[in-house]
């Protein structure tokens, strides 16, 4: 058998194999299971609702809220300025620039924290930085920020400060207990630092 026929047969065989197997569309995970365990235990991905409210009121430009619920739920209610990236589309290439970036702090939220955590786990394993989860989700947001409960008279002073802030925030966000807005006095919340990403060049080429 000559070289030509060997090459022909090899090409056809490889072609048939590659046509039969499903395409590899998986994106390789960057973090190992051990690294993920450390991340999860550290719970550093959590940001508390009061902080987020604070950043929202001060119109912090580096904050990007991402709503991972379905578009229907997003339509009904969403936090101001949030983007809707449903969990099912978290890996799609159009959303890549939002979830893999080095300029903003993404805060993912869902009703509870399951959906947002699911999204966060996937993104984190892909090695993406700067993604966080809104602690307690929207449910907790409603309970604390939108309808804050007055602390009992015996509570510590800081509880009252928190309550005042929440009531003020509630007014800003159009919640029930609208009162005159007192400038939020909460201390400048410590913000997770945005990890600058060395902007990877898009694959270059061409003549």
């Amino acid at each position: 058998m000559n070289l030509r026929n060997i090459i022909f047969i090899a090409l056809v065989l490889l072609g048939v194999v590659i046509a039969m197997v499903p395409e590899n569309t998986t994106k390789p995970y960057k973090l190992t299971a051990e690294q993920m365990l450390i991340e999860v235990q550290g719970a550093a991905e959590m940001v508390i609702a009061d902080d987020v409210a604070h950043w929202l009121i001060s119109k912090d430009p580096s904050l990007q809220l991402i709503d991972v619920r379905t578009p229907d739920e997003y339509q009904k209610f969403h936090l101001e300025g949030s983007l809707n990236i449903p969990l099912s589309t978290i890996l799609s290439s159009e959303n890549r620039d939002y979830v893999d970036q080095g300029l903003k702090m993404n805060v993912l939220y869902s009703n509870g924290t399951i959906g947002s955590h699911q999204a966060w786990m996937i993104l984190r394993q892909l090695g993406f930085e700067n993604n966080y989860v809104l602690q307690g989700g929207l449910n907790y947001w409603f309970d604390t920020i939108m309808n804050p409960q007055a602390p009992s008279v015996t509570s510590a002073d800081e509880e009252f400060a928190k309550y005042d802030f929440r009531k003020a925030a509630s007014g800003v966000f159009g919640g029930g207990n609208a009162v005159t807005i007192t400038a939020p006095t909460a201390n400048e919340a410590e913000k997770p630092r945005v990890i600058r990403k060395t902007k990877k060049k898009a694959p270059a080429g061409g003549c």
Partner: peptide, 23 residues
């Protein structure tokens, strides 16, 4: 064809990330 097959098989084996290939 050789390069096409190579890219697809490399991708299949996880040796290359086709998203990073210039198209």
């Amino acid at each position: 064809i050789t390069a096409m097959l190579g890219l697809l098989f490399f991708s299949l084996f996880g040796w290359i990330d086709l998203n990073l290939i210039y198209v």
